[in-house]
Write a protein that binds this DNA or RNA. Sequence first.
RNA 1: GUGGGUGUAGCUCAGUUGGCAGAGCGCCAGGUUGUGGUCCUGGAUGUCGAGGGUUCAAGUCCCUUCACUCACCCCA
Length: 419
Amino acid sequence: MSFQAPKGTFDWLPPRSERVLAVREALAAPLRTAGYGYIETPVFEDTQLFARGVGESTDIVTKEMYTFADKGGRSLTLRPEGTASVVRAVLQHNLHTGQLPVKLWYSGSQFRYERAQRGRYRHFWQVGAEALGSEDPALDAELIVLAARGFASLGLKNVTLLLNSLGDQNCRPAYRAALQEFLRGLDLDEETRARIEINPLRVLDDRRSEVQDQLADAPLVVDHLCAACKAYHEEVRGLLTACGVAFTDDPRLVRGLDYYTRTTFEFVHGGLGSQSAVGGGGRYDGLSEMLDGPPLPSVGWALGVDRTFLAMQAEGLADDEARQRVQVYGVPLGDDARRRMFLLVGELREAGLSADMAFGGKGLKGAMKGADRSGAAFALILGERDLAAEAVQVKDLATAEQSEVPLAQVVEFLKGKVQ
RNA sequence: GUGGGUGUAGCUCAGUUGGCAGAGCGCCAGGUUGUGGUCCUGGAUGUCGAGGGUUCAAGUCCCUUCACUCACCCCA
């Protein structure tokens, strides 16, 4: 085997792929009921969009982007996340000049150049939602509730919601300074010391115990929120509680992208190997301006499709048993019968039944095996004798009962039997 | 970018002090020349990841390399 999927990528194969498709649909379904419109944006964008939107100091931008030059010399990057693209599209097409908020959802591939491990790949899939142009705690709460509904609809029981507020341009600078002062006094490696100056909040997110052990007395954002941010955060918390959505306050939750303000949240699960997040998001009131747009306070999230599937596997919700692929399976004997069966299978499909047939000139036994493996409820056996009689043998594969049905009536006959 | 583990049949994996390349599952065929699932019988499939070295002899020992995987960093 000379070719294989590129490093850090993988293929979804049946029957698992069908379940992943269903996961994607289930995560998106609540958004459709809440007035979110579907948006598709290019898989690649101007590199600067992500550099400015995601943040120059983030790991995503400094080392995880798939960046390449096209034949025109433009620097393009495969999207590492969806929000920057959506904001760019909204600004480009002036969607924000209509009624606000603009509510959009998307679903698709994302790319990050990382060392792959369980739950973390170079090519992965997200379902995302964004509500742009409105500063309303109910909108933050709505999105969180919709995500929680999506996970719940898949049967997931062990998804936990972590919630925090990062403050805004009024209160964050003072907090940031206080945190920096604290962090500078710690014993940290060079890379982390550099991070203190660029994005000190992310030091709080470090999972290494030698770092965490020193952070016990670190100043927390919650203690530095201004009155407006505090009130906003309380409102979000109150709405979630009223909706019956459980959450855990996590004052250390900061997330890795630079654009977040106020509300941040993460849905975590224990079944993802060393990863924990199945989804996450937050408010990004300043992003539009970073991308040369007008002030456009917004909130959004992205849920990891493949990570959600891992979580389902961990909870025993993703059995690999093959499903029924078709309802009816044709078993032709001989060339004349094969031509007639080809037409019959087409008629069945036109009539709304799913149907397949044996291909490749298999013998009867092999064709019957095919019928069995297709999961079909009925096999249609057609040989020379049946053609002469203008009839087909209809075999119930569960009971092994077989009856002869005139070819002219078999479609109606099966419509009555199946479903 | 850094560290650990693993590479043998389509899949999951055995393979002893270096001595004929194996099992289970799957696949194909036959038992049944017009009947699947169960059962019985038979069959095919290998660059033992790749390259080099030691040896009479290497899947096994040594070196190099590649891939996969898990973990760190970080994140969905």
